[in-house]
Structures are given as C-alpha cells and as structure tokens.
Amino acid sequence: MMMFYWIALVVISCAFVGLLYRLVKGPTVADRVVALDALGVALVSIVALLSLIIGTEFFLEIILLLSILSFIGTTAFAKFIERGEIFDRNDNR
C-alpha cells in the first residue's frame, strides 16, 4: 500500500511541476488562474498522501484549509480578470 502512496506522490509531483511552469509562463492570465486552481488541488493531494504516509490525522485541517484557500484564490483571480479589480467599492454604481 505504501508503495502505491509513493507512486501517487511522484505522479502528482510531476503534475505539480508542470503546473508551476504553466503558472509562471502564462502566457495569458487565464492560463495562470487555471494553473493555480489545479495547483491547489495537487497540493491538497500531496498533503493528503503525506499524512497517509506519515500516518497521522493532524494534517486533515491543512487539507481543508488548502481547499478553501484555493477556492477563494481562484475566485479572486477570476474576478480580477473579469473586472480589473478585486473588490468593488459599491455594486450599484
């Protein structure tokens, strides 16, 4: 079983590196946002696998947190692309 975890880890790591490349390279902002979102997922998987390998339940919070952050981050970025700013002062302007 441990072997399986390790293999998964390596595969996801490769995906991680690829995503990083996309994130840095772009070329459009949209590419970057998608990359970022996928990175969040990859990161979640990595931490999850790690906690399985280490055998502790204390990293579960991290996983949850990561997914939340990734959600908010992606949303913010998406809005940024669409509106050009992150927060609206007043919606009804």
Binding site: I46, V47, L50, S51, I54, T56, F58, F59, E61, I62, L65, L66, L69, I72, G73
Partner: peptide, 20 residues
C-alpha cells in the same frame, strides 16, 4: 510543505494562510 514534512501541522496551517 517543509513544515508538513517536519511534523509541524500548526505551522503549515498558518504558513499556508499567511502566504496566500
């Protein structure tokens, strides 16, 4: 991730949020 590996879940949590 280093914090995760070196058994520091609290640190990892904080670091993640703060980094974001």
């Amino acid at each position: 991730l280093f914090f995760v590996i070196f058994r520091a879940p609290d640190l990892a949590l904080t670091q993640l949020v703060i980094e974001t």
